[in-house]
Nucleic acid binder design. Structure first.
Length: 308
DNA sequence: TAGGCGTGGCG
DNA sequence: TCGCCAAGCCT
């Protein structure tokens, strides 16, 4: 059910129930056996490594993040190193990860960490949330994964696992609902280390087993109690999920413009940028948007470059 | 709150 | 082929 809020079933397993504790054990045990060895999960990654990975992983698959993450951490091992760079270098090093405003925001977060937190990634959820590009999910993820704190971590993977296992729906609602937040809060284990393990484990279960298109229920540690399976794995019958149109949109034009500027070492004349898209009105709108977003810096003589 | 915001792989 | 999907955030 993408668009209708699936009701929490009566007797939903809170943390303090036997069923809740059983779920924790099953999923965390599965995680300890099957978790991927990802660089940002190693102790040497530190809070900065966790934060960089979380920015890069927003709407972006792990396999595409891995090489860029390694480059970034080698080049900018501490927030101060990135803060000392120009934002344009961050955008350039972002490469083709997509959503390049994330690079700008991560750079801005590094500057804020340097200015407000003495160069150390803050430990408090509220302080994290105040950083550019850090929303509810990323703040909870950094606090949980980097600092072992107890926070509900509600990403697309966890929402799907909960929708299936607990609400009996194939998909979670389109937008995160209050019911989902309450469920995540109620299910959170009491002690910090277990809560942090639960967060990582439920995410990994959604990423590896309880996937969107073809869940592998035979590998799932909680298949026996999964509400969706027990209901016969009914297909989603509500309105379709909002599509991500791309071809012919401003986003595509922005991507083409920025690709040229990323590769350029010198300011790029407007005439060169004009070649990336045939339609002048949309082309101008896209370029204006990049400038107003701070991704592109206009120079005298109708030339453009990444921001200094 | 609905929609904008990149990119590429996969079924 | 082409629509769906991938650890969201911001306005």
């Amino acid at each position: 059910m993408r668009d209708s809020a699936a009701p929490v079933p009566a007797g939903a397993p809170g943390e303090n129930t036997a069923r809740g504790r059983a779920l924790h054990g099953l999923v965390i045990d599965w995680f300890q056996e099957h978790a991927r060895d990802l660089p940002w999960r190693r102790p040497e990654a530190g809070a900065w490594g966790v934060m960089v990975s979380e920015f890069m992983l927003q709407q972006t698959p792990v396999n595409r993040v891995l090489p860029v993450y390694q480059e970034w951490l080698a080049r900018w091992p501490r927030p101060a190193d990135l803060a000392a760079e120009s934002p344009g270098e961050a955008v350039r090093a972002w490469g083709r990860l997509g959503y390049p405003r994330r690079a700008l925001r991560l750079h801005g977060a590094a500057v804020a960490i340097q200015e407000r937190h003495g160069g150390e990634v803050p430990t408090e959820h509220a302080q994290l949330l105040a950083l550019p590009g850090v929303g509810e999910y990323t703040a909870a993820a950094v606090a949980s994964f980097a600092y072992g704190q107890r926070h509900p971590v509600l990403d697309t993977n966890v929402r799907r696992v909960f929708a299936r296992a607990l609400s009996g729906s194939q998909y979670p609602p389109n937008a995160t609902t209050a019911a989902e937040r309450r469920l995540a809060r109620e299910l959170l284990p009491d002690d910090e280390p277990t809560a942090a393990a639960w967060a990582a484990a439920t995410m990994e279960l959604g990423a590896l087993v309880c996937t969107a298109r073809s869940p592998e229920c035979v590998r799932c540690p909680i298949a026996a109690s999964c509400a969706w399976r027990l209901a016969g794995a009914p297909a989603h019958d509500g309105p379709p999920r909002r599509g991500q149109t791309y071809a012919g949109t401003d986003r595509q034009v922005r991507g083409k413009l920025l690709a040229v500027l990323r590769e350029a070492t010198e300011p790029v004349p407007q005439a060169v940028l004009d070649r990336v898209w045939h339609e002048p009105v949309q082309r101008a709108r896209a370029l204006d948007g990049l400038v107003s977003d701070g991704l592109v810096e206009p120079l005298a003589g109708r030339r453009y470059r990444l921001p200094r």
